[in-house]
Computed example of a mutant assay.
Amino acid sequence: MNRRNYSPSNSEGSIPSNFSRHSPSKYQGYISYSRQRKGEKAVWQPRFWEHQIRDKSDLVNHVDYIHFNPVKNGLVKAPKDWKRSSFLRYVNRGIYSLDWGTDEDIKFSDNIGRE
């Protein structure tokens, strides 16, 4: 299977929820009274930029961006090193090679990740 033929499973929609529930408190920061009342964690921004995925190519570009973002920001040397990433699940499914994004500077168009 390659990234161009990928279709997401329903379970991947729960990734933010699972991350919030299982992330250590040191990553959650200050939780305001308002957020506490709503049961929200401070991991996520209170606002977001909505982007509707237009087609498979747009999906692939955004998933690539998400997996490469910790490398781009200097947090790890390779996507495989980011522990809370779905990257290794994609590798196990044959969508990425384990060394994807390791020794390359991946460029994204200006509209990816800035919507």
Rank of each mutant, 00 (worst) to 15 (best):
R3I: 06
R4Q: 14
R4I: 12
R4K: 14
Y6I: 04
P8I: 10
P8E: 09
S9Y: 09
N10G: 12
S14I: 08
I15N: 12
I15F: 05
P16Y: 00
P16E: 03
P16K: 05
S17V: 13
S20D: 09
S20R: 10
H22Q: 15
H22M: 14
H22R: 15
S23H: 06
S23N: 06
S25L: 12
S25G: 09
Q28P: 00
Y30G: 10
I31P: 07
Y33D: 15
R35N: 10
R37G: 07
K38C: 05
K38P: 02
G39W: 01
E40I: 03
K41H: 12
A42T: 03
V43L: 15
V43G: 11
V43Q: 14
W44P: 03
W44V: 02
W44A: 08
W44E: 09
Q45R: 14
Q45L: 15
Q45N: 14
Q45Y: 09
R47Y: 08
F48K: 10
F48L: 10
W49R: 15
W49I: 14
E50W: 14
H51M: 03
Q52Y: 04
I53H: 03
R54F: 04
D55L: 06
D55V: 01
D55A: 05
D58G: 01
N61R: 14
D64I: 04
D64P: 04
D64M: 07
D64W: 01
Y65H: 09
Y65I: 04
H67F: 07
V71R: 11
V71P: 00
G74P: 02
G74Q: 05
L75G: 07
L75V: 10
L75H: 10
L75M: 13
V76Y: 00
K77S: 10
P79Y: 00
P79G: 01
P79R: 01
K80Q: 11
K80M: 13
D81M: 06
D81R: 07
W82H: 06
K83F: 01
K83W: 02
R84T: 06
R84K: 12
S85K: 02
F87M: 08
R89P: 05
Y90Q: 08
V91G: 01
V91K: 03
N92M: 09
R93W: 09
R93T: 01
G94W: 01
I95K: 12
I95H: 07
Y96N: 02
Y96E: 04
Y96C: 04
L98A: 13
L98F: 06
L98G: 03
D99A: 02
W100A: 01
W100S: 02
T102G: 11
T102C: 14
E104N: 10
E104Q: 11
E104R: 11
D105N: 14
D105K: 15
D105G: 08
I106W: 04
I106N: 06
I106D: 05
F108K: 12
F108R: 11
F108D: 08
S109R: 15
N111D: 12
G113H: 02
G113T: 03
G113F: 00
R114F: 11
E115C: 14
E115T: 14
